[in-house]
Amino acid sequence: MAQAVPAGQKWWSGGKSPFHVEYGKLMMWFFLMSDAFTFGALLISYGTIRMSSNAWPNPNEVFKTFPIIGEMPVPLAFVSLMTFILIMSSVTMVLAVGAGHNNDRKAVLKWLFWTIIGGLAFLSCQAWEWTHLHMEGAWWGRNPFMNIDGTQSSSNFTNFFFTITGFHGFHVFSGVIVNIIMFIMTWKGTFERKGHYLMIEKAGLYWHFVDLVWVFVFTCFYLL
């Protein structure tokens, strides 16, 4: 269902964007496209190395701890919580963008606030997970886990894990900073004076992209 536009509209005859979006939004999409290939390259190189190995550690064994309840094995529960937090913060971001369409400053502030909280919660979870794995002896160049068939594992597993989740975490961090800037600008009434909240939309695209990448990271590292 494409946007409602007059039939027979000549998009390429000049004088208007043939993509029917504002310049900044188009460029944000192109940036995200290039970023998708960066993440794609990282994840695919991980896949290549994993395919070229005879065995690999079992994610259900590696990622089975949950804070507070400690050593009780609940495979993947914690990372599912992280996934849920990120999806949830994506929803609040859409609601912020929607509120921006209605020029509802109060609602934009409210939903941006929850998005920032969601981002911080995700980062905290990741910090806990990294700390926990580090305590178990995992780090770049160090892999304490056995392969699933009990053979010696290489540090490929931890190298890729920390590099890719780290790169993603850095994106989340940047997204939180961007959202905080959007929050301050909304708070100071910058967008109200401009008459539109299109900037929130661009920040929103970035934030959803971070969620999108996490969906793939989640599958590649925790499920497969």
Partner: peptide, 12 residues
């Protein structure tokens, strides 16, 4: 849905 691409025009 979240990134709203389904609701953009076909060129986009």
């Amino acid at each position: 849905e979240f990134m709203h691409l389904r609701h953009e025009i076909k060129n986009m």
